[in-house]
Computed example of a mutant assay.
Amino acid sequence: MEIVKIDSISQLREVIGLGKPEHPLITLIKYDDIVFEETKHLNKKFIINTYSISLKSVSGGKVKFGRSAYDFEDGVLVFKTPEQVAHFEPDEDCARFSGWSLHFHPDLIRKSELGKHIDKYSFFAYKQTEALHLSEREKGVLLNIMQTIKEEYALNIDKHSQKLIITNIELLLDYCARFYDRQFYTRSNMNKDIVIQFEGILREYINSDQLNDLGIPTVKYCADQLNMTPNYLGDLLKKETGQSAQEHIHHYIIEKAKNQLLASSEQVSQIAYSLGFESAPYFSKLFKRKTGYSPGEYRELNR
Rank of each mutant, 00 (worst) to 15 (best):
I3M: 06
V4L: 07
S10Y: 06
E14Q: 11
G17N: 04
P21H: 03
E22G: 15
H23S: 05
P24I: 08
L25M: 12
I26F: 13
I26R: 02
I29P: 04
K30G: 03
Y31A: 12
D32S: 04
I34L: 13
V35N: 01
K45R: 02
T50Q: 05
K56S: 07
V58M: 13
V58N: 03
S59T: 11
G60F: 15
G61H: 00
G61F: 14
K62W: 08
V63R: 10
K64I: 14
F65Y: 10
S68F: 06
A69L: 00
Y70F: 08
D71F: 08
F72M: 11
E73K: 11
D74E: 15
G75R: 07
H87I: 03
H87T: 04
E89I: 15
D91K: 01
D93P: 01
D93C: 07
C94A: 14
C94I: 09
S98G: 07
G99D: 15
W100Y: 15
E113H: 08
K116A: 02
S122W: 12
F123E: 01
F124I: 00
A125S: 12
Y126A: 05
K127T: 13
Q128I: 14
Q128P: 05
T129P: 09
A131F: 10
H133P: 06
R137C: 09
E138V: 04
E138L: 04
G140K: 10
L142W: 02
N144L: 03
I145C: 06
Q147V: 09
Q147E: 15
K150I: 01
E152A: 03
D158A: 12
L164D: 14
N168M: 11
I169M: 03
L171R: 12
L173S: 00
D174W: 00
C176K: 04
Q183W: 07
F184W: 01
T186G: 01
M190S: 09
M190G: 13
M190C: 13
D193R: 03
I201T: 08
E204C: 11
Y205F: 07
D209E: 12
D213I: 12
L214D: 04
L214S: 14
G215N: 02
I216S: 00
P217S: 06
Q225V: 02
L226Y: 11
L226F: 00
P230T: 14
N231F: 05
N231D: 15
G234V: 04
D235T: 07
K238D: 13
K238S: 13
K239E: 09
K239C: 09
T241P: 09
G242M: 13
Q243V: 04
E247G: 10
E247S: 05
H251Y: 11
Y252C: 06
I253E: 05
I254F: 00
I254S: 13
K256C: 05
N259Y: 07
L262Q: 05
S269Q: 11
S274G: 14
L275R: 09
F277R: 13
F283R: 09
F283I: 04
K285F: 15
F287Q: 06
G296T: 15
R299M: 07
E300T: 02
E300V: 01
